[in-house]
Amino acid sequence: MKLAKGAKVALLLGMVFVLSACGVGRAANHDGVYELSFNIQVPSTHQFHKEVVEPWAKEVEEKTDGRVKVNIYNSGALGTLSTAYEDIQGAVYDIGYVSPSLHPDTELFPLSIGDLPFGLSAPSDSTKVLTPFIETYMADTLEDVVPIGVSATDSYQLYSKEPVETVEDVKNQKIIASGYQRVDLVGLWDAVPVTLGLEEIYTSLDRNTVNQATYTSIGAVGLKLFEVAPYMTKIDMGNTALFYLMNKRTFEALPADIQTLFEEELAPSLVKMNSDLYGGASAEAIKVYGDSVAEKDGRVIEPDEEALAEFKKPAKTVWEDWVEMANDKGFDGKEMMEFYKKSLIEAGLSLPY
């Protein structure tokens, strides 16, 4: 049934009102309880929900003596990852995380350095390396948001319908990739990068719309990719930085003591929970994946050093292109890259290029 023009406008305004109600300071009118909306991209069955967001929400309520309640919205109910920064800025929801590489044309661009392939893999290393980077290059540039902290996912692997032993096995294949650095790398492998949302990975593999996908091991188990992709190739492409943010007006609406509590205890706790999950559960997730696909004659493939080097070689160009992109955006790309590499060394990590 077609809606009249006036009804359509009324419906749209109603939807905007509902989404806005999930945002800034809504709970200030609920007997002094501040209800904050936290939008995440995974379902409630995912480990990230069960071991990070849900326990953190309980901790917030406990440590604020019930004055703050965090309402969790799963499966991107309030917005996708591709619009996360704008959504948090506009108070579509109060708390969320962004993947900086999905926002290269915003002030988040500098942080996309943390997603360069074959750089950072462990979430705790991402926190150590990227926190000083944020403080040096981004502290005064963020608008309408308050940083909660930075962590990351576990490292990305390659999931496929057929075995992938060498880089030759990805040529001309359609591969799901997110973040412009991984998209560029897939192209340099002479494959065809396909950008899709998390909710589309399983279906696309199942329907043979794509042949392969890059994703984290924990995420792959959470999405049950082992049902549609019987092979995993462990190449440790690097992780995705997760930059946790709160809407600035939401933060400023909170009582001063709660603001301090977030800054000194709750924000660091969220980052630690994230790092503990993705840093500690990756190996187990890979084992689970291997056990699951074994029933279908699938397996986890670990390329030897020579084969792995061929996957890594083209990524040097992605690092060089990042510097040029930073220069084009008005930054000193060389200086930022030198700072980043110095931070990697100080964190006890080796430089891939």
Score class of each variant (00 low, 15 high):
1 M>N: 09
12 L>I: 15
16 V>N: 01
17 F>P: 10
17 F>R: 07
29 N>M: 14
41 Q>C: 11
46 H>P: 00
47 Q>N: 14
48 F>K: 08
53 V>I: 14
60 V>R: 01
73 Y>I: 12
75 S>T: 04
81 L>E: 14
83 T>I: 00
84 A>S: 07
94 D>E: 14
101 S>Q: 08
107 E>I: 06
111 L>N: 06
114 G>Q: 02
118 F>N: 04
119 G>E: 04
120 L>S: 09
121 S>G: 04
127 T>M: 10
129 V>K: 08
130 L>A: 08
160 S>R: 09
168 E>P: 01
174 K>V: 00
189 W>R: 05
194 V>R: 10
196 L>D: 02
200 E>C: 02
200 E>P: 02
201 I>P: 08
204 S>N: 11
206 D>V: 07
206 D>L: 08
207 R>P: 12
210 V>E: 09
210 V>H: 01
215 Y>C: 11
220 A>W: 00
220 A>H: 07
222 G>L: 02
234 K>T: 15
236 D>K: 07
242 L>H: 00
276 D>Y: 07
279 G>F: 03
282 S>E: 14
288 V>A: 11
289 Y>S: 03
290 G>T: 09
294 A>D: 08
294 A>C: 12
297 D>E: 15
299 R>K: 12
309 A>W: 03
318 V>L: 12
324 E>M: 11
330 G>T: 05
333 G>E: 05
338 E>Y: 09
341 K>S: 11
345 I>T: 15
350 S>N: 13
352 P>L: 07
